[in-house]
Amino acid sequence: MSGRAGPAHHLLDILAAVAPLRTWGSAAVIAILSSAIAYNAGAGWASSALIFALLLLAIPLLLRRGGRDAPVDRDPAWARHRRAVSPVMPADLSPVDRAAADRAAHDEEFDEDLELTVWVGENAAGDRVEETRLTRPHHAINGRALTLVSPYVEPDARPAPVVPELSFDTEAVRAHWQHTTVPGRGVVLFDAPVSARPLRWIVSYGVPGGLWNPLRCIGLDVFRYDVRQFQIGNFAVRFIVHGSAHKVFIQERNGRGRVTGYDRDPDGSTVVTWTSDYPAAAVLYEWDLRVVWRD
């Protein structure tokens, strides 16, 4: 892969940022054919060229805004490789944000309780995640790097970007979400450093295209969550499965924690609460989920 750099690839980078390269390719083909047709049909050189240019620009942009949740996108291997080995911090942050994000990423000066609430909807639109965090800063922190829960899509498909909603238990704290070049990853940048007391906050978001498609189709799925990146105290996950589920079975694969609650909500959904041992081990957790759906 080395030796694949140069002006041509900067152009490719820019094109790829607007739309997948494959889309550009298709657009070019369509534009060439259309202008050829137009020329053949008696249009002049100038108008054919105009048609070519318009189509070349319009098709990727139209497809991009076409309202499709997950346009299939093939990342060139060299870009993926670079993404894989690049350090935590992205290239698309402003210098100020990047400095703060950098500190946030390497700062382990806090510990945190985490409660994940995961909604398994009746369809993709019903899939939601809410992360309730109680962060105890050991000293002032500027930000918190987060990875949002996202589906295991085909490796070549890039998940649609998600901007989570942030809410804090005090009006004094404000922050904004700065996403990174890696899909699903970003940094919550606090407008002013947070230090004084434990901060309780909620990150909530839907998942475009759905998080639980296999679970809905075949009744089997695996949910993984990595807490190796920070010091964790209490850790709990609440699975709220839509009322069309008849039975729900959840187990952590490595025998960590246990299911501490199995209830039915008034609206018919099944709520399974899993709680880790205390303090939670800093590992990658894996839950096997099995659901029997009503017909």
């Binding site: 997950a70 085909e154 075949i218 089997l220 695996v222």
Partner: peptide, 16 residues
């Protein structure tokens, strides 16, 4: 893509 997701998920949940 959805079909692939289902196949992977089945294999993982069955064998993993």
């Amino acid at each position: 893509e959805l079909e692939l997701q289902n196949i992977r998920s089945t294999l993982e949940a069955a064998f993993g």
